[in-house]
Amino acid sequence: MSAERPEQPERPEQLERLAINQITVKGWSFEETVRGLARHGIGWLGAWVGPVEEYGPERAATLLRDHGIRVSSMCRAGFFTGKNPDGGGLDHDANRRAVELTAAIGGDVLYLVSGGVRDDLDLERSRATVVEGIAELVPYAASAGVRLAVEPLHPMMCAERSVTVTLDQALDVVEGFDPAHVGLAVDTYNVWWDPGLHASLARAAGRIIGYQVCDWLVPQPHPTFGRGLPGDGAIDLRSITRAVGAAGFDGPIEVEIFNEKVWAADPDDVLASVVAGFPRHVLP
Rank of each mutant, 00 (worst) to 15 (best):
A3N: 10
Q8A: 14
Q8C: 12
Q8R: 12
P9Y: 01
E10N: 02
L18C: 06
A19E: 00
A19D: 06
A19L: 02
V25K: 05
R35I: 09
L37P: 03
A38M: 03
R39G: 11
H40E: 07
G41P: 01
I42K: 00
L45G: 01
G46W: 01
G46F: 00
V49N: 05
P51Y: 01
P51I: 11
E53C: 06
E54Q: 09
R59Q: 10
A61S: 13
L64R: 04
H67N: 12
H67L: 07
V71W: 02
F79S: 12
F79L: 05
T81L: 05
K83A: 13
D86G: 13
D86A: 14
G88C: 08
L90T: 04
N95I: 03
V99D: 03
L101E: 06
A103L: 04
A104W: 00
D108N: 15
Y111F: 12
L112Q: 03
L112A: 06
G115V: 04
G115D: 01
G115W: 01
S126Y: 07
R127L: 09
T129K: 13
E132P: 01
L137T: 05
L137Y: 02
P139R: 10
P139D: 10
Y140K: 08
A141G: 09
A142H: 02
A142G: 01
S143P: 03
R147K: 14
L148R: 07
M156S: 15
M156K: 14
M156H: 11
M157A: 13
S162I: 10
T164W: 00
D168T: 15
Q169N: 08
V174M: 10
E175D: 08
E175H: 04
G176W: 01
G176F: 06
F177V: 15
P179C: 11
V186E: 00
T188A: 14
G196R: 15
S200V: 12
A202D: 15
G206Y: 00
R207D: 02
I208P: 08
I209S: 00
C214Q: 12
Q220K: 13
T224H: 09
R227T: 11
G228N: 00
L229A: 11
P230C: 13
D232R: 12
G233M: 07
D236R: 07
L237W: 02
L237V: 05
R238S: 03
R238Q: 06
T241E: 05
R242L: 12
R242Y: 06
A243W: 02
A243E: 11
F249V: 05
D250R: 13
V255N: 00
F258V: 02
E260T: 14
E260W: 07
K261M: 11
W263Y: 11
A265V: 14
D269V: 15
L271Q: 04
V275C: 13
P279W: 02
